[in-house]
Amino acid sequence: MATQGMEQPHVQRPRGKKPSRGRKPADAAPLTAYLFMAPYLVLFSIFILIPVVFGIWVSLHNWDPLIPVKPWVGLQNYLDLFTPGSTTFGPFWNSMEATGKFTLYSVPLLVVIPLLIALMLNQEFRGRNFFRATYFAPYVLGVAVVGILWRFLLSPNAGLVNYYLGALGLPDNTPWITDLPWAWISLVGVTVWWTLGFNAVIYLAGLQDIDPALYDAAKVDGANRWQRFLNVTLPGLRPVLLFVITVTILASANMFGQSYIITKGAPGEETTTAIWYIAEQGLRFFKMGPAAAMSYVLALALAVVSLANFALFRYRGD
C-alpha cells in the first residue's frame, strides 16, 4: 500500500497531465508548492489574517459584540491613546511602560544565562542528561502553577524565601511582591527560572550544529578557549541567536500571567502589563474598540523592535 502510494507521483509526473505555463517538464506541477502551503494558509487566514483586518474595523468603532449599536468613531480610539487625560491614556502607557521595563530587564538575562548553561551542558560529563532535563523541567509547567507556587514562596510575611533568609541572618522583610524594585526582580527572576530551559535547548541544538573541525582548526592555529568561543562558537550561533533574541523579546512583551497571579499588578498598577490591560478592557469590560486600537499600537511597537533586531544582525553579518 505504502509503496504504491509513494510511487504513483513518480509515475505520473513525467507524463505531465497538466502542462505548466511555459515551464520545463522537469519542474512541472507548479501547484504542488501551493497545495502544500494550503492547509496552513487556510488556518492562517481564518485565525490571523481575517481577525487582523477585522480588528482594524473594530478599532474604528465603540464596539461591544452584544450591543447592536456600534457607533463609528473613526480614529478616536487611537487619538485617545495619545491624548493625556483620556480614560485610556494613563493606564495604557503605564502598562506599556511596565511591559517595556520587563522586556528590558528580562531579555538580556534570558539570552545570556541560557547560553552559558547550554555551553556547560554541551560538555562531556557524567549525568549530563540529568542536568539537561533539570534545567528544562520548569518550562513544562503552566503559568498558573508557576505563578501560584512563587506567590506563596515570595509572600513577604508568610513566604518561605523570607523565612530562609531570616534563618541565615539576612533581612527577612523584603517586600518581594509588593514594592519596587523587588516586584520586578521577582517577576524577572521567576520568568528566567521558568523559561531559560527553552532557550538553552535551542542553543544546545545550535552548538551541536557547529562543525567540530572548526574548533580543531582553531586549536591548530593556537586559539585559546575564549578566542575559540568568540571566533567559532558565536559566529556559528548567529542564526540561532537572532532567533532566540527575537522570540524572547516577543515572549517578554507578551508577559501577563506572572504579574496577574504573583503581584496582582501591585504596587498600584506598576506591574500591570500591556497585554493584561488590553485583555481586561476588551474581554472583561467588552470595550473592544479601544482594546483593538491598543493592540495595534502594541503590535506596531513590537514590529519596529523586531525589524531593528533583524537589521542589526544583518548589518553585522555583511
Partner: peptide
Amino acid sequence: PKDVAQDDEFT
C-alpha cells in the same frame, strides 16, 4: 504587617 500579599491574611 506592611506589604501583605494576596491571601496572606488568610494563611
